[in-house]
Design a binder for these strands. Structure first.
Lengths: 116, 116
DNA sequence: TGCGGTACGAACAAACTTGTAAGTAATGGC
DNA sequence: GCCATTACTTACAAGTTTGTTCGTACCGCA
């Protein structure tokens, strides 16, 4: 998400991991924020600023980076309107929407097994 | 998984994230290897060395760290037998087994949406 | 006495992710 | 002309995760 990988074992291991369907999927939504962003966008398209307001503790930079990575990965569609001040809207793709039921189950897991 | 958290925003944000059931769950299985370890252990208890053989590209150190963290998190039971040479077996807890169906769905997601 | 087997532990280093702080562009309103 | 607004960008600096290498303990066996 920063300057992109280099060489050596770290990257080689990542390659192994991406060969597995399971870890491939998880790899798409790794990082601290992507999952949260997806769950916010599940209810429909949102502007950059709207998403930002949902996460007061996330920096703008992080949001930008995550959204860019998600766009690259085909998880969100980015729509730029030629207005001033600028307006940009983000919307989940089908691929990202397909995570919906999975996230629901993960949420249930969390509710059930979280410690007091 | 290394020296444990410090202070400041990074940690503070993690706290926010753990408040959410969804990200709490994901946080339990983050990192590069935990998910793979869980899926291997789904078929029953294994010795340290057996698990190791399943992942020729993972270092012993990583395996140790992950298993330790998972034990702390209540995902695996660790059983040490007082023998020489030592024998240690790992087994999933109910909590970890509950990830089974979720992993299956994630796997299906990966199979369906992975790029050529 | 030296060696092999198992499951680690410790010190150090490289790579990646996340956060901080500031600045940019264009335009309409004052 | 000057300012506010929005969605970023850039340079830099923390902080965390992963990987490398070596070393330990214990017992039986040659």
């Amino acid at each position: 998400m920063a300057a992109r990988k280099k060489n050596s074992t770290y990257t080689r291991n990542e390659a192994h991991i991406i060969e597995c369907d399971l870890t491939y999927a998880v790899n798409k939504i790794n990082g601290r924020w992507k999952i949260l962003i997806i769950s916010k966008l599940e209810s429909g398209k949102m502007r950059f600023g709207e998403i930002k307001k949902e996460f007061p503790y996330m920096t703008e930079r992080m949001l930008t980076l995550q959204l860019r990575a998600m766009e690259q990965d085909g998880l969100v569609k980015r729509m730029v309107y030629a207005e001033v001040p600028p307006r940009v809207e983000y919307e989940l793709t089908e691929m990202a929407l397909a995570f919906g039921p999975i996230f629901k189950q993960l949420s249930e897991w969390g509710g059930k097994y979280r410690l007091p």
